[in-house]
């Protein structure tokens, strides 16, 4: 499937700008979603190709304007919902509860 992820040869993205002092993770949520990627694959909920596919079907504008680990959140959430492990509503409800507890 081609799409926004198929970047080879595209013009206009500017210089590479490597940062020699970058950290492996910039936010705690990046660590957690990274680990959940392994843990959910180990539970055989879905395959790695399914996760990759669900990154590739992201809205192209969102794909290009979001960070690497944000792609993972999108893909893992989509896959979990597809597989009926959780529903969109359950995630929304749980988010409200977490926000309330933190307030």
């Amino acid at each position: 499937m081609n799409g926004a992820h198929d970047l080879g040869g595209m013009h206009g993205f500017g210089p590479v700008n490597p940062d020699p002092n970058e950290k492996l993770f910039n936010h705690e949520w990046e660590r957690r979603i990274f680990a959940m990627y392994f843990a959910t694959l180990a539970s055989d909920i879905y395959s790695i190709d399914e996760l990759r596919k669900n990154i590739e079907i992201m809205d192209p504008v969102h794909y290009l304007s979001s960070s690497y680990y944000e792609h993972w959140v999108e893909s893992i959430e989509t896959s979990l919902i597809d597989r009926k492990i959780v529903t969109k509503e359950e995630i929304a409800e749980r988010m409200k509860k977490i926000d309330k507890e933190a307030a």
């Binding site: 705690e28 949520w29 957690r32 959140v73």
Partner: peptide, 14 residues
Amino acid sequence: AELSTRVKAIESLL
């Protein structure tokens, strides 16, 4: 900012 909450929600449900 909601990404952090979203990830926490998914983690706690699983």
